[in-house]
Nucleic acid binder design. Structure first.
Lengths: 233, 233
DNA sequence: GCTACTCCGTTCGCTGCCGTACATACAGCA
DNA sequence: TGCTGTATGTACGGCAGCGAACGGAGTAGC
């Protein structure tokens, strides 16, 4: 199976040839479908995933409230971080919202491989660091930024991960992601459409003007993007 | 220097005797004073800290806004996590808000020790996991919970870390921590005082009724406490 | 005892989002 | 063609928190 750009995951692609080959032998490509729930809160983690052109949302549950997306994983990262930290139970839910491909490895294989492969360790540790910075950023974002800016941010982040300007997402779903009412999304999305930044109809969203949408998004988008790009490896 | 309860840091106390002795040789006790800034955003990390009865707030900066406390470190954890992940630059600021003691180790010593000491690795990795869960929780908390509940939460968290019901904190400072106006803190704190849960005067806060304050806090307090207590080590 | 400063209390109008409810529009299917 | 379910639009009262401003009360220094 040739590794063309569409198949690339950053944590794997950064491995040198021989390491990469060994890891590859333990990986299997899987197709992730919209709505697949890869992890559930409190459940054991059976596989780790390295997305290539799919996007998975990480959700927390807040007692008495709706769920909330705290992070988003794509080709820049992986799912199953707790395994790399010695914990085999997921503290969050993981929901596929951008259908696509990912590489998958069993928890046992990952455990073995991770012990041996110091370069994989280095990449994963680096990603854990990035994730923590992003979580802190998101905590502040949720406190300070308005719905419209946050909506723009998440749409751009999804675009970057699925590598497409077309997203499959209803307003209701976006409401659950952002932790706001569906009505709030309608208004924010309407404002963005008004400015010809996006278009949408019945669950199909298109980003028409990327730079414009970036300008409408809060600075968290840029910050988050920078975090994952400045790999000093 | 004898290790009595007041001197205990969870990550160190969980080490077996011989490991502990070797680590101890590289540690030095330091007194942290109110207002000390241990790390600054973007600066190199020169030491790691293992607090015992001090409390340090982790702050992010959000462009155009005030700072915000996203986490709090005390005897349950450590400062300098990025070093354990191969990054030697702090992505956040760390501000001492509960004066007290901590054990300190130079970055170089920590680097060496961390490579060798797999038990320390295990403890630190476990703490990193806890911290990530807590960050996600805080992101949701900032989105959903009201000022009064969040204030109660942070006060309780500080109490647990400094091991004292007396806190040294002005309302203005609390406003910066919570990301709200000072006036917002005045109102929330007034409501808590009304219910005889706390008392305060000119920067000295006393928790009068712990259980009552817990009831007034959002569920995030309990969740956060559970995270750090359920060590299956 | 006077002054300067810090900390806390209160008020006012404003706005972003909430909860709820209802209306419209499109899609698939019988 | 009509039915049903889903997706989106709109409206309305309510409220938590905002920004700004001012007043009062305790503390420290002179």
């Amino acid at each position: 199976m040739p590794l063309v750009c569409q198949d690339a995951n950053n944590l794997l692609a950064a491995l040198p040839g021989n390491d990469y080959q060994r890891v590859l032998a333990r990986l299997e490509p899987v197709t992730l479908h919209f709505g697949d729930e890869l992890y559930q809160f409190g459940q054991a983690i059976d596989h780790v995933y390295f997305p290539t052109n799919s996007q998975i949302s990480i959700l927390t549950l807040s007692e008495g409230h709706q769920s909330l997306v705290v992070s988003m994983v794509g080709h820049e990262g992986m799912l199953g971080i707790p395994l790399a930290l010695g914990v085999n139970e997921s503290p969050v839910s993981a929901l596929v919202q951008g259908a696509g491909m990912a590489w998958r490895m069993s928890a046992a294989h990952f455990h073995d491989e991770f012990q041996l492969n110091t370069l994989l360790q280095r990449n994963v540790h680096r990603y854990i660091h990035e994730l923590m910075v992003e979580l802190a950023q998101t905590a502040a974002c949720n406190r300070f930024h308005h719905v419209e800016a946050r909506l723009a941010r998440w749409l751009l982040m999804m675009r970057d991960r699925v590598r497409s300007n077309k997203l499959h997402l209803t307003q209701d779903l976006l409401g659950h992601m952002l932790g706001v009412r569906r009505v709030g999304v309608t208004q924010a999305a309407g404002a963005l459409r008004e400015r010809k930044l996006i278009s949408y109809s019945r669950g199909e969203i298109s980003i028409l003007d990327g730079p414009g949408l970036e300008a409408a998004a809060c600075s968290c988008y840029r910050i988050s993007k920078n975090i994952h790009e400045q790999h000093p490896i």
